[in-house]
Design a protein around this nucleic acid. Structure first.
Ligand SMILES: [Mn+2]
Ligand SMILES: [Mn+2]
Ligand SMILES: [Zn+2]
Ligand SMILES: [Zn+2]
Lengths: 121, 121
DNA sequence: GCTATAATGCAAATCATTCGCATTTAGTAT
DNA sequence: ATACTAAATGCGAATGATTTGCATTATAGC
């Protein structure tokens, strides 16, 4: 995969972002890059394992830099995403299914974040 | 929610299916029901908690009857879905995040199913 | 610098899902 | 049973995210 100016810019935007970003959000930060190019590059990065694609619902997919493996908790009220880690190895052993070789574990929590907890109660 | 003939048919199809089905798969079984109606009814069932909507990728959403809560393992080779249960309560305690109230836990495993395991090796 | 190949821009195409609106139906009250 | 009202349906058109075809341009190696 060639190292182009566009690709560096896209990675930079993701690197400096606390949250996962959609293709259109990235495009908003980099309007000079064609949206189709952003999609193509994101796909390349996902294949290369540089970034992770999150399908958190029927809306746009979100992309984030793949630092260490982690999971997500999403607030039902504000859609805020919290990143957290667990002992993946331990869980993989715990979830062992006969005949199924686990290569990836994904835990998604839904609920209410700190900000909206009190209001909901 | 009214109990219409169409709604009963849709639930019947889901009931008799081992696997989760997409809206178009249901439409293939019930061609006399308009696809838009199928989508509308599936959405109503999800809201009512009768069925569960699975977003397992960028493709079509899948729907399944909500018997007991369970999770899914998807084969990377053939997209076969295996359903399994874990001790949800135990995990919810284990995953406790400060300030986040968990209402739903979702575990998704990716890997290789029994059928494709040998070939891949 | 020259070349082969991959990357990009642009517009058009896809595809799942949703919407608007006229028509029909279920459930309920007469 | 009849009438009435809100919900459900069919149909086609609209949406919105993502992809694709193709001509043009940039990258990496020689
Ligand atoms: Mn994350
Ligand atoms: Mn299932
Ligand atoms: Zn929140
Ligand atoms: Zn398989």
């Amino acid at each position: 995969m060639r190292i182009t100016k566009h690709r560096q810019e896209i990675l930079d935007v993701l690197d400096h972002s606390e949250e996962a970003l959609s293709a259109s959000a990235i495009h908003a930060s980099l309007p000079h890059i064609n949206l189709a190019t952003i999609y193509r590059n994101l796909e390349s990065f996902v294949e290369a394992g540089t970034i992770t694609k999150l399908n958190l619902g029927g809306e746009e997919a979100q992309y984030e830099i793949q630092d260490e493996p982690h999971h997500h908790a999403i607030c039902n009220e504000c859609n805020k995403v919290i990143h957290f880690t667990v002992d993946d190895e331990k869980l993989v052993k715990e979830f062992a299914l006969p005949g199924f070789l686990i290569t990836n574990l994904e835990v998604t929590l839904r609920g209410t974040c700190a900000t909206h907890k009190t209001k909901t109660k």
